[in-house]
């Protein structure tokens, strides 16, 4: 470490070195570590701010599990054996995020492969533009546009009824179709580009060699392309999963009236509930669960954390 510091100083000079190290330290400590530590600290406290501000910082302001207990079992007079609403929403959110991730993977792998190995020059550039330009529209606007598209009197229903496939409109919003489509679409680039990056570096001859040895297309992908693309696939899945589990705007706008996303509950605790400690606890549980799931996935598919960064 000391040696590394010395060569770093020698190479960049004192001024630049202090700036670079300072910037990195600021980034890591102020932007990443401190906020999470505050959240962690909050999550173990009573909400004295609202109940009785005078007891803040007093002898009663001690660490407690009360917020985590609430997430699991609800209020003391809850007749159920556990906090049915919150726990159900939590698991439904996780499962739905997994579903969105798989959907994106199925959709984006062929696109990424096509971009990386099949399309050339102008065609590839055009396709990339077509993928990127829609994201110039901001997230809220896009979500509302999806609402118009999928609404009971929306474009899709109008078309389906117009050509006679449906006699009565389907409420895609109530059925959560709009939510999954919106979430899925929101993160396709985060799935496509990591996979594209990896497949692009795959030697075309490998694909041809497999084909020459008699492989069907399916087997070429299963035995040559997908194993090679695994770091990219994991990286894409991780991002899409984390972001969709943590999404707020899309569920808020596109979610049906009966379906809550776990982030909406967190938001309620922070905002309307004015209970930051409870909101923090919920957020920490969501984050840790997501991280744990990703780590299990990586273990399962034998991907090392360093490979994801490529």
């Amino acid at each position: 470490m000391r040696n590394w510091l010395r060569t770093f100083l020698a190479r960049n000079g004192i001024g630049l070195s202090v700036y670079m190290l300072g910037a990195v330290a600021l980034w890591v400590i102020v932007m990443i570590i401190l906020p999470q530590l505050f959240m962690l600290d909050f999550s173990f406290r009573n909400n004295w701010q609202q109940i009785d501000p005078s007891r803040m910082g007093g002898p009663d302001d001690v660490y407690t599990m009360v917020n985590y207990h609430f997430l699991a079992f609800g209020s003391p007079n809850n007749p159920d054996p556990f906090n049915v609403v919150d726990v159900t929403v939590f698991f439904r959110t996780i499962v739905a995020a997994i579903f969105v991730t798989l959907f994106d993977l199925a959709l984006c792998y062929p696109i990424a492969y096509y971009l990386a190995q099949v399309a050339r020059g102008g065609k590839a550039r055009l396709l990339v533009l077509a993928l990127i330009i829609p994201f110039w529209v901001n997230e809220l606007l896009r979500a509302f546009a999806f609402r118009i598209l999928f609404g009971e009197e929306g474009t899709i229903n109008a078309i389906l009824m117009g050509i006679g496939v449906l006699s009565d409109p389907i409420d895609f919003v109530r059925e959560d179709v709009a939510l999954y489509a919106g979430l899925g679409y929101a993160y396709i680039l985060l799935m496509i580009f990591p996979i594209y990056n990896v497949i692009e570096s795959l030697d075309k001859n490998q694909i041809e060699a497999a084909r020459d040895l008699g492989s069907s297309w399916w087997r070429i992908h299963r035995r040559v392309v997908i194993p090679f693309a695994k770091p990219g696939i994991t990286s894409g899945c991780t991002m899409v999963f984390m972001l969709s589990a943590g999404a707020l705007a899309a569920p808020q706008i596109l979610g049906g009236p009966s379906s809550l996303w776990f982030t909406q509950i967190i938001y309620q605790w922070f905002n309307t509930g004015s209970n930051w400690p409870r909101g923090s606890a919920y957020a920490i549980v969501l984050m840790l669960t997501c991280v744990l799931l990703v780590l299990i996935l990586m273990k399962l598919f034998k991907v090392k954390i360093g490979e994801i960064g490529r």
Binding site: D203, E208, A210
Partner: peptide, 10 residues
């Protein structure tokens, strides 16, 4: 069966 210039082993 083709042997590639860069061999293209998996």
């Amino acid at each position: 069966a083709l042997i590639f210039q860069n061999l293209a082993l998996f």
